[in-house]
Simulated scan of single mutants.
Amino acid sequence: MDELRSAMEEHMDQMSDLIQKLSFELQSGLRPALDNFIGFFHAIDWKEPWLMGLLGFHGLLLIITIFTRKRTNFQMFLFLFALAGVYFAEGINKILSKNWKKFATQNYFDPNGVFLSALWCGPLLVISMIILINTLFTLCYLVVRWKRAELRHRARLSQSKED
């Protein structure tokens, strides 16, 4: 009986420690993540021409995505283009890390590819998600149109059989 009691007390102590750790993490909230983001944001020289060009490229790609939302084939091309950009990001990071002195004032391209993931892959994945959601809406609309046409066809068939 004493063994059971000591095991229960030990378990309760472990649970108490876990609850205290969770409480501390919830109290700290998103502050550490926000501090890391702000540090990352301030470490970048946003006035560099190649960075402004990169942001302009992503802006242009987003505008093209929005204006061509009714052209499904072109959207699929953009979708594959964006995903190919994400796929080749590791190779792009290696090339840029070797040649950063030619176009940048500091080496942003670490071996883990954090910078390129945030500023290259992140926007491309957001654009890909927009295209995917648009495609799903288009498919839902087509299914509804198809079902309505099928119901109209069945109604005509049943009406012609009655006559």
Rank of each mutant, 00 (worst) to 15 (best):
M1S: 09
M1W: 11
D2M: 08
E3C: 03
L4E: 15
R5W: 09
S6A: 11
M8L: 11
M8K: 11
E9T: 06
H11R: 10
M15D: 05
S16W: 03
D17I: 09
D17Y: 08
L26C: 02
R31D: 11
N36I: 05
N36F: 11
N36E: 14
F37Q: 08
F37H: 06
I44S: 03
P49T: 15
L51I: 13
M52T: 08
G53V: 02
G53A: 11
L54M: 10
G56I: 05
H58I: 05
H58S: 03
G59F: 15
G59A: 15
L60D: 03
I63P: 00
F67I: 15
F67Q: 15
N73P: 01
M76T: 01
L80M: 09
F81L: 13
L83V: 04
G85H: 01
V86G: 03
E90Y: 11
G91A: 04
G91V: 04
N93Y: 02
N93M: 07
K94E: 13
L96M: 07
S97A: 14
N99F: 02
W100E: 04
K101S: 14
K102C: 07
K102S: 15
F103Y: 13
T105G: 14
Q106G: 02
Q106I: 06
Q106F: 06
P111H: 01
N112I: 12
G113Q: 05
V114Y: 10
S117F: 07
C121V: 07
C121Q: 10
I127H: 03
M129I: 12
M129W: 06
I131H: 02
L132I: 06
I133M: 03
N134V: 01
N134S: 07
F137L: 08
Y141D: 15
L142A: 09
V143S: 10
R145G: 01
W146G: 06
W146C: 08
A149I: 04
E150Y: 11
R152Y: 07
H153N: 12
R154C: 05
R156S: 09
L157Q: 13
Q159N: 10
K161Q: 13
E162R: 14
